[in-house]
């Protein structure tokens, strides 16, 4: 099989790689590039553990051919924040107790980011709907939704605070 040369922006850095036409994005990320933060939970697009951002949208990297990201921008959990500078969602996941086993966490974080990037003030229901493709077996989702809501609230420079809104 002839390899395909692709170029894409991965976590802010331009990367050039040669890929087999049938190579999946998840395998490119994990096995070739060593970015193991993205997880394989089912390999069939059912669980969302492999969620990454493709041009800002949350996608299952186990269902995408690597060649498909040519010319695109990809963000994985490694590009979201670092030990020194956590993304607000990462901070909130820690503070709110949204992490138990942590296997769904990277995908969950990226799904949450893709929501907040287009809707800075989602309701709890909108959050629940947006992460419905990311399965979590540990938390019952409550604290995950709490964490996302917390960031949404902080992000809108709340004069608002939820309590003030409820009291209105």
């Amino acid at each position: 099989m002839d390899k395909i040369k692709i170029q894409f922006v991965l976590n802010g850095e331009t990367r050039q790689v040669e890929v087999e036409p049938d190579l999946l994005l998840i395998d490119l990320l994990r096995e070739r590039l060593g970015l193991t933060g993205t997880k394989v939970g089912c390999g069939e697009g059912d669980c969302g553990a492999c969620t990454v951002l493709l041009n800002g949208k949350n996608v299952n990297s186990c269902l995408l051919l690597a060649a498909r990201v040519n010319g695109c921008e990809v963000v994985t959990v490694e590009g979201l924040g670092s030990y020194d500078k956590l993304h607000p969602l990462q901070e909130a996941f820690i503070a709110e107790g949204a992490v138990q086993c942590g296997f769904c966490t990277p995908g969950m974080l990226l799904s949450a980011k893709s929501l907040l990037d287009v809707n800075a003030r989602p309701t709890r229901e909108e959050i629940a709907r947006h992460i419905a493709g990311n399965l979590c077996r540990c938390t019952g989702y409550t604290k995950i939704i709490n964490a996302i809501e917390k960031v949404a609230c902080a992000d809108r420079h709340c004069a608002c605070s939820r309590e003030a809104e409820e009291g209105r």
């Binding site: 970015l35 193991t36 933060g37 993205t38 994985t76 959990v77 490694e78 979201l80 924040g81 670092s82 030990y83 956590l86 990462q90 996941f93 820690i94 503070a95 107790g97 992490v99 138990q100 942590g102 966490t105 990277p106 974080l109």
Partner: peptide, 11 residues
């Protein structure tokens, strides 16, 4: 905070 949470959110 959970002892393992930081490593897990960072990937």
């Amino acid at each position: 905070p959970k002892a393992d949470a930081l490593d897990k959110v960072i990937g």
